[in-house]
Amino acid sequence: MKLVIGLDGHGSGDHALTFAKELAAKTTDCELIVVYVIEWSPFSFQTAEENAERHKRREEEINIAMERVVNPAVASLTEAGLKARAIVRHGDVADTIDAIAHKEGASQIIVARNSSGGLTSRLFGSSTANLVMNARVPVTVVA
């Protein structure tokens, strides 16, 4: 069984992680895939200078996400004796998590309840809400 855990770098992600740990402990041969998506759109506007430095920035962004969010999560899972690996991607959060889960053949996506509110999420819906509505794989939202 494969489980995809979507993290957003906030504290609430720990709840998702704990939930996944408990679920995985109940089954044998479960692989956990920790996913962190860096919000990015191929249709945004950038200056020429930003474009020239984009590759470098992308590497930096991936490294930071690995160091601060993903690696500690994977470490805590492996310490608990579970099989875990990490994926960091750029893109739309909901679309990307769904695409990874679909590609990996995961049986479930586990995400935390979206912690940030505000006008943007009211207007466009939070990433979690978008994921729940559009995912091709069952989604568990952990409170």
Binding site: W40, P42, F45, Q46, R54, E61, R89, H90, G91, T96
Partner: peptide, 13 residues
């Protein structure tokens, strides 16, 4: 390649 400069971005710039 997500996160790199896309064709759209190069054109827009």
């Amino acid at each position: 390649d997500a996160g790199e400069v896309s064709h759209f971005q190069a054109l827009a710039t």
